[in-house]
Design a protein around this nucleic acid. Structure first.
Length: 550
RNA sequence: GCCCCUGUAGCUCAGGGGAUAGAGCAGCGGUUUCCUAAACCGUUGGUCGGAAGUUCGAUUCUUCCCAGGGGCGCCA
């Protein structure tokens, strides 16, 4: 918000001086404090179009800028930077504005209600959710929360692949385990089947409930029955895991339902109309290579069944039909080869493929005692999302997932996530919040806490640390729009760590609740109370609890 | 072979067309009659993987190369 204010002011000055400003210039916070609170490159950027040297332009501009008393100092530096030093009064005024908005601070209309569909996790309902699913859940949910706060109209959806080949294999796996329980010799468990322990648990549950009755059905009925049972159970299991992770979806879209609604035929006919399908070797193909894919893709296999691609494409079409104008898919690292084909289909059917945006999460490696935890899906040896939540807790898990850039591999140190000291950023940040709460409690006890804070108190906030905290608080709205635009929730973690460090340092250096000066104490309490509100906002965006006490 | 991601301090990672590249941890040395020491302060540590190019200016953008990870099914 401060950058905007300065930017607007510079533009006003340029107008008054009848200078040209076609090219875009920026207002930034310099990484060196000796370069002011804010700086702009506008004199360098606009020099050419005004036929002046950067320094000459800066000189003229600075003279005009200086008329504003919000600046303590405006100076020319380096090759033509203009550095701004803001007056305490300016920060104090900003702070009072922030206080006025309370817990709705940083809510904006930036997204202008654009309908955005966020699809994430979308795991196969053939087993428990894994670590990458957990990462996707944390990432997608936090992106959702941020986008919502800055004025988009986002929706979270989970696509359930409850039809197709993998589900058949699941049913077969369950049948084998069931027969095993009933004493049949099933021989060696097939390589392709699901080896996880959870299949045995499902078999036990079904055996207890229905026993041999399952095998009195016709084979066709039995397979359907086993599928339905397994899918329901596993989906419930996944939903429970997500609930524990505090991730909620507005929509659960079933592939089976989509197929029943006939959208598959619809998609096939669209593609046929677009004249980009052909028959080869008894299969029906999509000529995706005409639209940028590196090879053509099968739509209908030679056995008459369709590939995963078709209903998934149909699902994407329903997103468009429901009025979403931005479709964001969060994928695991193993799906990037899938993108050209779905984008090709968008183009073939006459849709703008740029509305579909795919974010790839890279893999997660777990480390314990410095050793990588080896997992094998085939052998059913995986660390599940539930294991992780049990082990390190929801807060730490979400934090570590969000803190890392999406497109970077994530080394998850289980021991670090468990540590309750300054090595662990989660506790570092939560402790800063708890600390503020405890100070406030003390102030109430000591009767220093006022019924309401008077505006004049802001003038007492003039220490470097206090102004820096105010500046940090003021950064939040802009940060959130950046996160929303660039889909980079990891920046929340950096922000939170910075703010927490400022609070810990401030606490160590100054006594907040001091009997010597009630007014000064109240001014500082007011600052901390607002910081607490901002921290709570950020914690909430990350889906992490903001403890009052630790 | 082709495609995607990554390469910044001993470790885990931020940052980003500009002015002296940051944090945490680890290492070393300190801080508690006082609101939680789950904290704070000081200090050591870098040819930003390599080479060219674009630019007034590149660690940031482009290309190539090297290294690590992942993906290349009529699986999903």
């Amino acid at each position: 918000m401060i950058k905007e204010i300065i930017h607007t002011h510079i533009t006003e000055c340029l107008e008054r001086l009848e200078l040209s400003f076609e090219k875009e210039f920026s207002v930034e916070t310099p990484n060196n404090t000796e370069h002011g609170d804010y700086s702009t490159n506008c004199a360098m950027i606009l020099a050419k179009e005004n036929k002046k040297s950067p320094k000459a332009l800066a000189d003229i501009l600075i003279k005009e800028l200086k008329k504003n008393k919000d600046y303590k100092k405006v100076e020319l530096a380096g090759p033509g930077f203009i550095n701004f030093y803001l007056s305490p009064a300016f920060f104090q005024r900003i702070f009072w504005d922030i206080r006025g908005t309370g817990s709705s601070f940083s809510e904006q209309d930036f997204g202008q209600g654009e309908k955005v569909l966020l699809e994430f996790v979308s795991a196969n309902p053939t087993g428990p959710l894994n670590i990458v699913n957990a990462r996707a859940a944390a990432f997608g949910d936090t992106l959702y929360r941020v986008m919502k706060r800055v004025g988009y109209a986002p929706t979270r959806e989970f696509y359930i692949n409850d039809a197709g080949n993998q589900v058949d294999i699941l049913a077969e796996s369950l049948e084998l385990r069931l027969r095993e329980l009933q004493g049949d010799n099933i021989g060696e468990f097939p390589y392709e089947a699901y080896h996880g322990e959870y299949v045995k648990h499902l078999a036990q549950k079904l055996n207890a409930a229905e026993g041999v009755r399952v095998f009195m059905m016709t084979e066709k009925d039995r397979i359907e029955h086993l599928k339905e049972f397994a899918l329901n159970e596993l989906l419930e299991m996944q939903k429970t895991s997500l609930e524990r992770f505090e991730v909620v979806f507005e929509g659960w879209v079933s592939e089976k339902t989509l197929r029943a609604e006939g959208v598959v035929e619809e998609v096939l006919s669209y593609l046929t109309e677009a004249d980009c399908t052909f028959e080869k070797e008894d299969a029906i193909w999509f000529a995706s290579s005409k639209y940028g894919d590196d090879k053509d893709r099968v739509l209908m296999k030679s056995d008459g069944s369709i590939t995963y691609f078709v209903p998934d494409l149909a699902y994407h079409l329903t997103k468009i039909q429901r009025g979403f104008t931005t479709l964001i898919d969060v994928f695991g690292p193993d799906h990037h080869g899938y993108v050209p084909r779905i984008k090709a289909a968008f183009k073939a059917m006459g849709y703008d493929d740029s509305m579909l945006e795919i974010i790839f999460l890279q893999q997660v490696n777990l480390f314990e005692s410095g050793e990588r935890v080896k997992m094998s899906k085939r052998a059913g040896k995986i660390v599940t999302m539930d294991d992780l939540i049990n082990e390190v807790g929801k807060d730490a898990a979400r934090y570590f997932f969000i803190a890392r850039k999406a497109n970077a591999h994530l080394n998850f140190d289980l021991e670090l996530a468990l540590k309750q000291n300054n090595e662990n950023p989660v506790y570092y940040c939560q402790y800063a919040h708890a600390r503020i709460c405890s100070i406030i409690k003390k102030a109430r006890k000591d009767k220093v806490w006022p019924k309401s804070f008077k505006k004049e108190l802001v003038q007492k906030l003039n220490k470097t640390e206090e102004l820096a905290i105010i500046q940090k608080l003021a950064d939040l709205p802009e940060l959130l729009t950046l996160i929303a635009v660039h889909r980079e929730p990891h920046r929340l973690a950096t922000y939170l760590e910075d703010l927490s460090a400022m609070i810990h340092r401030y606490y160590a250096k100054y006594q907040i609740v001091s009997p010597k000066s009630k007014e000064l104490s109240q001014a500082r309490l007011m600052l901390l109370e607002s910081t607490k509100t901002v921290m709570a906002i950020v914690f909430d965006l990350m889906g992490i609890s903001a403890p009052e006490k630790m």
